[in-house]
């Protein structure tokens, strides 16, 4: 089972003067259990693309098939159980009196579960998002920004999606909150084999998290690559409004000075290793 996107085209305001092709002829297959970063500048079509995965948007041409279900078919309810969608700033959608009730909301609406099983799943989702038991009876509005966001994501996780799509999940989080969120998502991916798809404008963040990177540019799929290969062509990335990590720029500078120094480094640890090869310890 997988996500198959075939020749997908989506047009906003079709047949009007405002017509805009947001996604143009995109074909890509995402396999079960992958960690995928979909990257692109504002307006590149990345959010439009992922909104097709649970049938929020429908193709104007082409097809999207998720675990065998065509998003144009009538099985939309089934589709939405499989694909959990976390929008930008999901904490703005919190509304319940307690963290527990907020996480439970989607579960109670979508599934008719016995009370004890529901309780188990709610507590499990909270734990997966690193929310402690003491927080469960608090008002979500008393929590910090990072905690609120994790409550909102737990509210999607609790429904047990096999595919989790997150649109800019780290925007506005402090560095620690960001790292913790990525750790939680990696852990869910590892233990439950959940496919995790993250929409982001940061190549740097995705290079640290994803095992596959899709770059969108002007509605088209411009790159389908791995973190290791993504930074081989920095000029191309920059021409698409993206940038490389600071250490990549440092590596490129060093490669000009030192013969044979690798120019495609994108992590701090690798940079440390390579410098140790060329500069002797005092």
């Amino acid at each position: 089972m997988a996500i198959e996107i075939k020749n997908l085209t989506h047009i906003y305001n079709k047949d009007t003067v405002m017509e805009k092709v947001a996604v143009r002829d995109v074909t890509v297959t995402i396999r079960d259990g992958e960690k995928v970063g979909i990257i692109g500048h504002t307006g590149s079509g990345k959010s439009t693309l992922v909104q097709h995965l649970n049938g929020l948007l429908k193709p104007h041409a082409g097809q999207v098939i998720v675990n065998g279900i065509d998003t144009m078919s009538k099985d939309i309810k089934e589709l939405r159980k499989m694909v959990g969608m976390v929008f930008q700033y999901p904490e703005h959608q919190l509304f319940e009196e307690t963290v527990y009730k907020d996480i439970a909301f989607g579960l109670k609406k979508q599934f008719r579960l016995p009370e004890d099983e529901a309780d188990l799943r709610i507590r499990e989702a909270a734990a997966e998002m690193g929310l402690s038991k003491e927080l469960m009876d608090k008002s979500p509005f008393e929590l910090s920004g990072g905690q609120k966001r994790r409550v909102a994501i737990a509210g999607v996780l609790v429904t047990g999606p096999s595919i989790l799509v997150l649109d800019e999940p780290t925007a506005g989080l402090d560095p620690k909150g960001r790292d913790e969120l990525f750790r939680s998502l990696s852990e869910i991916n590892r233990t439950k084999k959940t496919t995790v798809i993250i929409v982001s404008h940061s190549m740097e963040e995705m290079a640290g998290f994803a095992d596959r990177i899709l770059v969108m540019n002007k509605g088209s799929l411009a790159m389908d690559t791995t973190p290791d290969k993504a930074f081989e062509n920095v000029e191309l990335l920059e021409s698409m409004g993206l940038s490389a990590p600071q250490v990549t720029y440092m590596a490129r500078g060093l490669a000009r000075i030192i013969k044979g120094f690798p120019s495609d480094i994108h992590t701090v640890d690798r940079m440390v290793e390579e410098i140790m090869k060329v500069v002797k310890r005092p």
């Binding site: 600071q246 250490v247 440092m250 701090v268 440390v272 500069v279 005092p282």
Partner: peptide, 16 residues
């Protein structure tokens, strides 16, 4: 910044 962290890690390994 990443660059700062690179030198921090190098210094932990005995560089100055």
């Amino acid at each position: 910044p990443q660059v700062t962290e690179v030198f921090y890690k190098l210094n932990k390994k005995g560089y100055k």
